[in-house]
Amino acid sequence: MIDFFIIPVIKVIILFTVCLLIVAYTTWAERKILGHIQLRYGPMRVGWHGLLQPIADGIKNFFKEEVIPDNADKAVFLLAPVISISVAIILLAIIPFGEPFTIFGKKITLWLANPSIGILFILGFATLGSYGTILGGWSSGNKYGYMGGLRASAMILSYELSLAFAVISIIMMTGSLSLVDMVSAQHGLWNVVKQPVAFFVFLISGTAELNRTPFDMPEAESELCCGYNVEYSSMKFALFFLAEYTHMFVFASLVTTLFLGGWHGPFLPGIVWFFIKTFAIIFVCIWVRATFPRLRYDKVMKLEWKFLLPVALANVIVTGAVMALV
């Protein structure tokens, strides 16, 4: 009873609260960091240095008026944000946050589940998350939303490939699909040293899958005036927004798990190292957003099909050859 029900439920509650708090404060961090990079302060009014801003935003979103456009496809319009957020949160379940520890004679693992299909679960469900984007754009009955949704599906279809091939080289080195095994295998040397090419391919295609600048084709403000979520208001918009940042957190923790040695690190406990690395990756994402301009649409596609995919494939072949020879 305790092992199968109470401990998992407590873990789910902690995971849910902590991660959603982190996600809420990622939005604050993004605004602050962007502000400071551009020589301004960012949010300053609510709380000390705007620390209560995410909470104020949340309350504001609750009380906004909900608008459903006349020519929207109502059922799908309502379903889209739900798909987005639920799929994003499901991904948190199998991320290993730290090494297992023992309390009151019980072994507690810092992950909710460790299925044998591990990373495939994440790849599969991360793709499903983009259904929210696509359907949101399509069902709005708005041409900008429509274009945004179309672009989102084209982006996912292409960048999913190089992402998967970058992961395959890691799977080949570990010999297992489970994320926990992958972290354990990096006890000595991190994968970023052994697989630098896969690391960069994963970072770039991951940023593209997150729809973040410089690849934010589906929402490109200057072309599509916010793209797929243009007709969404109130809490439904907030759910899309939350989903996007949850995906970013999941992506950062995946980079940590796959390439930066997960919870391994000297002196500090594992979970602290995990969050240090994850926040470093989130910072890189925000930094990239502040630095690079948005690419033109055809260049985004060229980058994937003519550069990233061949590089990722070559990396898989080289990894296989080296593993066969050594």
Binding site: G124, T127, Y131, Y146, S153, I156
Partner: peptide
């Protein structure tokens, strides 16, 4: 994931 995404893309 992949095939239905393609079909949806084609429909759109």
């Amino acid at each position: 994931g992949a095939i239905m995404m393609f079909i949806l893309y084609a429909i759109m």
